[in-house]
Design a protein around this nucleic acid. Structure first.
Lengths: 276, 276
DNA sequence: CGGGCTATTGAACTCTATCAAGCGTTGTGG
DNA sequence: CCACAACGCTTGATAGAGTTCAATAGCCCG
């Protein structure tokens, strides 16, 4: 599919000086100036968010608090890197607010997009990667707040709260099923269909509907879509142009709105459900 | 890649009457006639195998025994189906002896091969698939012995032995990393390289070396290799023919021997390591 | 206002799927 | 035990989806 080196594929990520601030769970006084956005009662708000995280379902308030206090809070602007492929994997993350993407690149400069991560999802979490290295790079798409646990805290947590381990097992299982279904898709469907599916998944997961259609709530470039579907931005551009001319969609710079999902669905047609 | 319906893709699996015999863990007297292969001390032998299963690392003898006694033993000939895609997922499995392949097919009749399973590996185990259905079909490649636990037994086990849950987490994580790396491969590498990688993985995992090279220890057809790499048996055949003419390999009916892995490695060349 | 990004589009090219046909082996049933 | 069917493999020819190459145009931010 993507064959050889194309300069377009080398995406220059802006490596803003990592304005990572570690914040002891319940020590708001440690906040640094750039954290002005954060009100002092952040604790309670984060805790409420935390309660919605699937990974922590089944924990009662006290346990949640304990989990929270073992965490480190990091705040990022848009387009910052949370961790980079190949780095030592010390932290496991949960996204509280914002949006980020997890991408993997091959040594020859090609890139694929593993997934977009939304609020309350865990990421970078394949606990103790055997290699002890992150297999992918996580980059924020919008300003984000993440909680992180280091190896020790994580193991502690898993030991104290077996329920969390079970949740993790379930979530990893889902993830695995999704990746497998994506693999099947990549191996058997043609590009247009893959793009349609990807778009549908994005709108379903994070679409903002208004009178004239559903728009993806965060910026997605053609290249992103290409990396997501295993093709090139050129092909994606052509396809979207076609759809736009048909009036199926509306799109601009890193912006896509689907007018009529049912049309896309018929392009993606198949009995097979879209996983996730 | 694989575009439209090709009769070749509809692989007629021989659905032998499932000669599944359920055997209470420690009740050898329940064995049915077809189990003549099995000596009476099967218990101890299976137990020893069980001790080597990564999923059960860290359990002591008593616990292993408990785990074993919660299991059901099933024996299969070659080319039998253990579970089928879409069936209700009641059982989780560990392969004790033999070899099997796990394949997924899309509604339009295309097929991909998720993985080959060797002794001591777990499969069909993404505990409690959310859908409660197996997402793939497992077929024996050689005569095999599997142990199975039903949902209840499994949860019991996870509850009694948190260590098993942690092991499972680690194994799933590895699995996920492998699938992701395979996805990256499929999206970015061309066919020849993918085939070379697949062959190398097979020989490394289950190669029998002799004076003139390394042979894959179980039957692998061109179609299998194609399903494994997301291409067609035609292309695989052409590629292998080429390599054979170069003297890199030697191959027959469902039989492949690699003379010089280093040559294949240079075809698959890249700094990227072959995940598993 | 200029310099990056991002997107659009045309044209050429090529990898690989698809179509088609044939061959040797295995194994099965008469 | 032989014959025939099924299976696995090989190979040539053809075509097409989608990558690659190239060039341009619009948009956003500093």
């Amino acid at each position: 599919m993507v064959r050889s080196h194309s300069l377009y594929q080398f995406r220059k990520l802006r490596f803003a000086a990592p304005s990572v601030k570690k914040v002891g769970g319940s020590c708001p006084e440690l906040f640094e100036p750039e954290d002005w956005r954060v009100p002092l009662h952040v604790d309670m708000e984060d805790l409420r968010s935390l309660a919605k995280v699937p990974l922590f379902q089944g924990l009662d308030a006290d346990h949640l608090r304990a989990v929270y206090e073992g965490s480190t809070c990091k705040r990022k602007g848009a387009n910052e890197v949370v961790f980079r492929q190949g780095q030592e994997a010390r932290w496991s993350y949960v996204l509280l607010r914002g949006r980020l993407k997890v991408a993997q690149s091959s040594p020859d400069g090609h890139q694929i997009l593993n997934r977009y991560v939304g609020p309350e999802e865990m990421f970078g979490c394949v606990l103790l990667y055997k290699s002890h290295r992150y297999p992918a790079t996580a980059t924020t798409v919008s300003p984000s707040v993440v909680l992180a646990w280091d190896r020790d805290a994580l193991f502690c947590m898993l030991e104290r709260f077996p329920r969390v381990a079970l949740n993790a097992l379930e979530l990893l299982g889902e993830e695995l099923a999704i990746v497998r279904s994506r693999y099947l898709e990549l191996a058997t469907e043609r590009v247009e269909r893959r793009v349609a599916r990807a778009l549908l998944r994005l709108t379903e997961k994070s679409g903002k509907a208004d009178g004239r259609g559903v728009e993806i709530a965060f910026p997605v470039s053609r290249q992103d879509l290409a990396d997501l579907t295993g093709t090139t931005l050129h092909t994606v551009s052509r396809i979207l142009s076609g759809w736009r001319q048909q009036g199926w969609i509306e799109s601009g710079r890193r912006r896509i709105k689907v007018h009529d999902p049912s049309v896309l669905r018929s392009i993606a047609e198949d009995d097979r459900p879209l996983q996730a």
